[in-house]
């Protein structure tokens, strides 16, 4: 047992380094993906049919394509089309697209949950369509969607573990290379699992709390 703890102590710094990369990947994907998702959510209820269909098609591709396919596509596929990205950038690009697809559906649900009477009242007050979206619909829709967005953020954090397949040096990749060097896969993978849990479980609790708080106030 002490042997295991000693090894864990030795490995921890490298794994934490990997964890930082995982968190950075998550943050970058959410920062790019959620605004894109919001744009897609707004466009998918556009009054122009061509715009609406294009947005819906993008969303369905983003959600329908497994994250791992998206990653391999960007990293191994795009270079043949003349676009070579570093592993980290490929990972951010792919995960952002996935994020955009999923969050646009989440946000669309939130936007639709804003009572039609409020949009109508804004119109009756002479507010423009754009102002109505900006001041009335989007702020409330995002708030309604917040717990689901947080839940999705946890999933995308977990999905960063897939980027090891395109040789991003994140948590799982660090654990795997330690395992390959020491042949103690189980020991190091358990520690990696615990580190993932150290993020996902508190984040899950926070999500639940947010959900309860918001449902009380709206």
């Amino acid at each position: 047992m002490t042997g295991l703890l000693t090894s864990w102590g030795e490995w921890l710094p490298r794994l934490l380094e990997g964890l930082v990369t995982s968190v950075e990947l998550t943050a970058a994907s959410l920062l790019l993906g959620i605004p894109l998702g919001l744009v897609l959510a707004l466009l998918s209820s556009s009054r122009t049919r061509a715009v609406r269909w294009a947005a819906i098609a993008l969303v369905e591709i983003g959600r329908g394509t497994p994250a791992l396919v998206m990653l391999q596509f960007v990293y191994y596929g795009l270079p043949s089309a003349g676009l070579s990205l570093t592993a980290f950038v490929s990972a951010v690009a792919a995960l952002s697209l996935t994020t955009a697809g999923y969050t646009s559906e989440i946000l669309r649900g939130g936007l639709q949950a804003v009572p039609a009477g409020e949009t109508e009242a804004a119109g009756a007050l002479g507010m423009s369509h754009r102002d109505t979206l900006r001041f009335v619909v989007v702020p409330q829709g995002v708030r309604i969607a917040l717990p689901s967005l947080m839940g999705f953020a946890i999933l995308i954090f977990q999905a960063t573990s897939l980027t090891f397949t395109i040789s991003v040096v994140e948590l799982l990749s660090q654990a795997y290379s330690i395992g390959a060097a020491t042949f103690r896969y189980l020991d190091v993978l358990v520690l990696a699992g615990l580190l993932y849990l150290a993020v996902t479980i508190p984040a899950g609790l926070l999500t639940n709390r947010t959900e309860r708080r918001l449902s009380r106030h709206l």
């Binding site: 009756a124 007050l125 002479g126």
Partner: peptide, 29 residues
């Protein structure tokens, strides 16, 4: 917009904006 501005409307279900204070509700438009 000009027409809507010169005609005020009050609804059965109030339709205030719940995420804004009373003052913001009246000031924003």
């Amino acid at each position: 917009a000009a027409l809507r501005r010169s005609v005020g409307m009050v609804f059965q279900s109030f339709n205030l904006f719940p995420h804004m204070t009373v003052l913001r509700n009246v000031s924003l438009p």
